Simulated scan of single mutants.
Amino acid sequence: MTRLAALLLVLGGIAAPASAQNIEFLPGMEWDQPPVVTPGETDRDPPSDAVVLFDGKDMSAWENGEQWPVRDGIAFAGKGYVTSKQKFGDCQVHLEWSAPSNVKGDGQGRGNSGVFLMGIYEVQILDSYDNKTYADGQATAIYKQTPPLANAMRKPGEWNTYDIYWTCPKFNSSSQLEEPAYVTVVHNGVLVQNRFALRGDTAWNHPPRYVDIGPKGPIALQDHGNPVRFRNIWVREFEPPTGQRREPMMMNHSDGTTKTLAEIAAEE
Score class of each variant (00 low, 15 high):
residue 121 Y to K: 03
residue 192 V to T: 11
residue 188 N to E: 03
residue 144 K to T: 15
residue 24 E to F: 11
residue 51 V to L: 04
residue 70 V to F: 09
residue 46 P to F: 01
residue 169 P to G: 04
residue 259 K to H: 13
residue 208 P to E: 09
residue 170 K to C: 06
residue 16 A to F: 04
residue 265 A to F: 14
residue 54 F to R: 00
residue 132 K to E: 15
residue 149 L to W: 04
residue 218 P to D: 05
residue 253 H to K: 15
residue 205 N to C: 15
residue 88 F to L: 04
residue 38 T to S: 02
residue 108 Q to P: 11
residue 42 T to P: 07
residue 94 H to A: 01
residue 164 I to P: 05
residue 249 M to I: 05
residue 7 L to I: 13
residue 173 S to M: 05
residue 124 Q to D: 10
residue 123 V to Y: 03
residue 44 R to M: 01
residue 19 S to N: 07
residue 25 F to K: 11
residue 105 G to Y: 08
residue 228 V to P: 10
residue 156 P to L: 04
residue 222 Q to K: 11
residue 201 D to S: 14
residue 244 Q to I: 04
residue 64 N to A: 07
residue 36 V to K: 13
residue 23 I to C: 00
residue 41 E to D: 11
residue 265 A to S: 07
residue 24 E to A: 10
residue 55 D to K: 05
residue 33 Q to F: 07
residue 223 D to R: 08
residue 35 P to D: 11
residue 178 E to W: 00
residue 96 E to A: 10
residue 225 G to Q: 06
residue 203 A to T: 13
residue 268 E to T: 10
residue 80 G to A: 05
residue 229 R to P: 00
residue 155 K to F: 02
residue 236 R to D: 00
residue 1 M to N: 08
residue 173 S to I: 13
residue 262 A to E: 15
residue 66 E to R: 13
residue 59 M to N: 08
residue 198 L to E: 01
residue 260 T to F: 14
residue 153 M to G: 00
residue 254 S to N: 12
residue 236 R to L: 01
residue 173 S to Q: 11
residue 67 Q to S: 12
residue 120 I to C: 07
residue 247 E to T: 11
residue 50 A to F: 01
residue 79 K to H: 10
residue 7 L to C: 15
residue 216 K to W: 00
residue 17 P to V: 03
residue 39 P to F: 00
residue 167 T to H: 12
residue 48 S to Q: 02
residue 148 P to N: 06
residue 173 S to E: 14
residue 103 V to Y: 09
residue 114 G to F: 10
residue 76 F to A: 03
residue 80 G to S: 04
residue 68 W to Y: 08
residue 8 L to W: 06
residue 267 E to D: 13
residue 135 A to H: 14
residue 140 T to I: 07
residue 234 W to K: 05
residue 227 P to Y: 11
residue 137 G to V: 12
residue 126 L to S: 09
residue 98 S to M: 08
residue 111 G to I: 02
residue 101 S to I: 00
residue 43 D to M: 00
residue 178 E to S: 05
residue 81 Y to N: 14
residue 79 K to E: 12
residue 129 Y to C: 02
residue 191 L to A: 04
residue 29 M to Y: 02
residue 5 A to W: 04
residue 260 T to S: 15
residue 176 Q to F: 04
